[in-house]
């Protein structure tokens, strides 16, 4: 059994990659995927700690995160479709009407 720190470290790397995706990509769908990646990184940490403490709650929590992610994807993609219909684009940089 490997120390749990390895898994958590991997989780941090994946999280950073996801965050980087949100920050540097303009494609709304890819940004969304990056968010999913960040959620996964968090899930990995949960499962690792569940193993660490021998407690099942961590895994149950992952289960709930998956449910929330599914709901989020359904709504989020619907939003993207709706935006695409009006703007004919999924470039988030074009949606800047809040500019001061």
């Amino acid at each position: 059994m490997l120390p749990v720190t390895y898994y958590v470290g991997l989780s941090a790397v994946l999280f950073a990659i996801g965050a980087l995706g949100v920050l540097i990509r303009r494609n709304a769908i890819i940004i969304f995927m990056s968010i999913e990646l960040m959620l996964n990184a968090a899930n990995l940490a949960f499962v690792a700690f569940a193993r660490e403490y021998g407690a099942l709650s961590g895994q149950i929590f992952v289960f709930f995160v998956m449910t929330v992610a599914a709901a989020e994807v359904a709504v989020g993609l619907a939003l993207i479709v709706a935006i695409f219909r009006t703007k004919q684009s999924i470039d988030v940089d074009q949606m800047s009407s809040l500019k001061g």
Partner: peptide, 9 residues
Amino acid sequence: AVASGLGML
């Protein structure tokens, strides 16, 4: 995992 993440990115 890291490579596929970066690939996605």
